[in-house]
Design a protein around this nucleic acid. Structure first.
Length: 521
RNA sequence: AGGGGCGUAGCUCAGUGGUAGAGCAGCGGCCUUUUAAGCCGAAGGUCGUGGGUUCGAUCCCCACCGCCCCUACCA
C-alpha cells in the first residue's frame, strides 16, 4: 500500500516509527476530552486575557492539525474540530524534551490531543497553552494547500473527506442539509404523520415516468428494478388506513446527469387523506416557508443573482403562466381561454415556433403530440426559466398526469401542481386518482404508448389496492437535493450530495469489472 | 447522446516549437507569543494517455481518457 505523493507518504511513515521509538503509543484507543475546538471557541470567545489568567480554564482538546509554525524551542499550530479551528502553543520548557520531540515529528493532517489551559496571545487570539501533547492518529498523506485549499472539483467529489476538512463552507452545506431534513420530520411529526419506508427494489417500477435501473435477486431468481418513485406503495398504505404518511428516501433514475440531476436522489413524498391539491398548496407553502425560516433564519434567500422571498408565493395556472411570460416579440400572448379551445395549443405552438426560428431558439416539435403535451412544452419553453420567486403552477394537462385526478369542470386538466423557486423545479403534487377503472385505463394507455421510461407491465396489485378503496387523498413529492441547493446557494446538485456519481477513477491497475455487465446499445 | 472548455510538482497556478518555473506543503538548518510566520540550503515533473507533423513537441494536428459548463430526457 503506497499512495501519492510517495515521498511524503514514506516520510510520514518514518516519523510514525520515530514517535513509537520515543515511547508513544502510535495508535491509542481513545482520548478523554473536555471540549472540541468548536466548543472552546463557542464557550470562551468573549473571555479576556486577564479573565483567563485570573480564572484558569483547563481543557483537553482533540483535533486535526491544520497549520504548524515552529519557532525554535516553541511552536504554534491550529487544530480543527467540528468545523472550527483553535490555536495551540507548545513550549519545550513546558512539555519537556520528549514532548517537544513528538511535536517536531507532527505533520499537518495529524490528529492530536492536547491538555492544558486557555490564554490569549499578544495579538489576542484564544489559544491552548499545552502542558501535555499526544498523537491520536498519524496522517500518512498531506492535506491540500492551506491558503487556496482544494479547488479541483473532481478531487473534491472523489475525496470528499479532504473537501470537508479543508473547505469550511462545504461542511456548512451538509450541516444545513441535515438540519433541513430534521426540521422536515418535525413538521410532519407535529401534524400526526407517520414516517414509513417502502421498497426500493420493485418488480414494477411505477409512480413516475423514468427509465429504471435493473438488478436481479439470485435466490428468488427475480429481475428487479430500483424504484423510480415510492408513490404507489405510499398510496397502498393510505388504503391501509395510514391517513397521513411520508417517506424521505432515495429514488433511482437511469437518466443523464446534469447540474440538476443525479441518478440517485432524495425525495420527500407525503400523502394526506381526505384532502385535495388545494389543501396541499397551503400545506406546501407552510412547509417551505417554515423550513426556510428555521433553517436559514430568514425568509429571503440569495440564489445566484436573485433574492428569493419565501413570504411572497404566487399561484398561476399553467395556461396563465404561458400568457404571463409570453415573449413580447412573439406577438399577442394566447389567453388561458385560447389555450383551452380545441386547436388552441397548436396555434400557440406555431406562433411560438415562428418567433423561435427568428431568434435562434429551439422550436417545439408539434408532430403527433396531444394538446396537453403541447401546452406542457409551451410552458417549459416560455415560462419555466422565469419562475424565480416561489411559485405554484397548477392545472396540468391530464394526459401528462396519469396518476392525478381530473378536474370536474374540465376533464382535460388534472388537479396537479408543481413547485418552482430560484428557477428550480422543486416538487410535484396532485389530487390522487382513486377511481380504479380510470386508473387501469390510464395505465393501459401509457403501456400502449410504450417507451423505456414506462413500465411494461400493469401493476395489478396497485389496482387491487385501489379497488379496496383509496380515500380522497392528495400527495406531494419534494426534491431534497434541489431544495438544499436553494437553501445553500449552490448551483450544482453535486455540491449538495456527499458522493455524487462519477465515472470510476482509473488507477494504474486493471479497469473495474462488474460481475454482470448489461450491454446496451 | 450533441456542442464548448479544461487537464503542467502533493496543492494553487504561471509559461514556451529548442524536453519547464513560482507560492504553499515536504526535507536539512536557525529562531521561546507566531498566525498566508521569517531567513539560509537542498530536493521534487514520462507537462492526462497514445499516435502524427517536425531536425526537435509540454506547446501544432488527430484519437482516446477524465472533469466542468450548456443543450436533450427527467425531479
Amino acid at each position: 500500500m503506497l499512495f501519492e505523493p510517495q515521498d511524503q507518504f514514506l516520510q510520514r511513515k518514518r516519523k510514525l516509527e520515530q514517535i513509537a521509538a520515543l515511547g508513544y503509543d502510535p495508535f491509542p484507543h481513545k482520548f478523554a476530552f473536555t471540549h472540541t475546538p468548536a466548543a472552546v471557541v463557542r464557550q470562551y470567545a468573549s473571555r479576556t486575557a486577564a479573565e483567563l489568567e485570573a480564572q484558569p480554564i483547563s481543557v483537553r482538546v482533540p483535533g486535526r492539525i491544520l497549520t504548524i509554525r515552529l519557532h525554535g524551542k516553541t511552536g504554534f499550530a491550529h487544530v480543527l474540530g467540528e468545523g472550527e479551528r483553535l490555536q495551540i502553543y507548545v513550549r519545550k520548557d513546558v512539555v519537556g524534551e520528549r514532548g517537544f520531540e513528538l511535536f517536531h515529528r507532527l505533520d499537518i493532517g495529524d490528529i492530536i490531543g492536547v491538555v492544558g489551559h486557555l490564554f490569549r496571545t499578544r495579538t489576542g487570539e484564544l489559544t491552548v497553552w499545552v502542558e501535555e501533547l499526544v498523537l491520536l492518529t498519524k496522517a500518512l498523506l498531506p492535506l491540500p494547500e492551506k491558503w487556496h485549499g482544494l479547488a479541483d472539483v473532481e478531487v473534491r467529489y472523489r475525496q470528499r473527506y479532504l473537501d470537508l476538512l479543508v473547505n469550511v463552507d462545504v461542511r456548512r452545506v451538509f450541516e444545513r442539509r441535515a438540519r433541513l431534513i430534521a426540521e422536515m420530520r418535525r413538521f410532519f411529526e407535529a401534524r400526526d404523520y407517520i414516517e414509513v419506508e417502502t421498497p426500493m427494489m420493485q418488480l414494477i417500477a411505477g409512480g413516475a415516468t423514468a427509465r429504471p435501473f435493473v438488478t436481479h435477486h439470485n435466490a428468488l431468481n427475480l429481475p428487479l428494478y430500483l424504484r423510480i418513485a415510492p408513490e404507489l406503495y405510499l398510496k397502498r398504505l393510505v388504503v391501509g388506513g395510514l391517513d397521513r404518511v411520508y417517506e424521505i428516501n432515495r429514488n433511482f433514475r437511469n437518466e443523464g446527469l446534469s447540474t440538476q440531476h443525479n441518478p440517485e436522489f432524495t425525495m420527500l413524498e407525503f400523502y394526506q387523506a381526505y384532502s385535495d391539491y388545494r389543501d396541499l398548496m397551503d400545506l406546501t407553502e407552510e412547509l417551505l416557508t417554515g423550513l426556510v425560516r428555521t433553517v436559514c433564519g430568514t425568509t429571503t434567500l440569495p440564489y445566484g443573482a436573485h433574492q428569493v422571498d419565501f413570504t411572497a408565493w404566487q399561484r398561476l395556472s399553467m395556461r396563465e403562466a404561458i400568457q404571463r411570460f409570453w415573449p413580447a416579440e412573439a406577438g399577442p400572448a394566447p389567453t388561458p381561454a385560447d389555450l383551452a379551445r380545441p386547436g388552441g395549443p397548436h396555434r400557440a405552438v406555431e406562433q411560438y415556433n415562428t418567433y423561435a426560428r427568428r431568434t435562434q431558439r429551439t422550436p417545439i416539435e408539434p408532430a403527433q403530440l396531444s394538446e396537453g403535451v403541447l401546452t406542457g412544452l409551451l410552458f417549459e419553453a416560455v415560462a419555466e426559466e422565469h419562475l424565480i420567486q416561489p411559485t405554484l403552477i397548477y392545472d396540468f394537462p391530464a394526459d401528462l398526469s396519469p396518476l392525478a385526478k381530473r378536474r370536474d369542470d374540465d376533464p382535460t386538466l388534472a388537479e396537479r401542481f408543481e413547485i418552482f423557486a430560484g428557477g428550480l423545479e422543486l416538487g410535484n403534487a396532485y389530487s390522487e386518482l382513486n377511481d380504479p377503472e380510470e386508473q387501469e385505463q390510464r395505465f393501459r394507455e401509457q403501456i400502449a404508448r410504450g417507451g423505456e421510461e414506462v413500465p411494461k407491465q400493469l401493476d395489478e396489485d396497485y389496482l387491487r389496492a385501489l379497488c379496496q378503496g383509496l380515500p380522497p387523498t392528495a400527495g406531494a413529492g419534494l426534491g431534497i437535493d434541489r431544495l438544499t441547493m436553494l437553501l445553500t446557494d449552490r448551483h450544482s446538485i453535486r455540491e449538495v450530495i456527499l458522493f455524487p456519481l462519477l465515472r470510476p477513477e482509473v488507477r494504474d491497475s486493471a479497469p473495474p469489472t462488474a460481475p454482470e455487465v448489461v450491454e446496451r446499445k
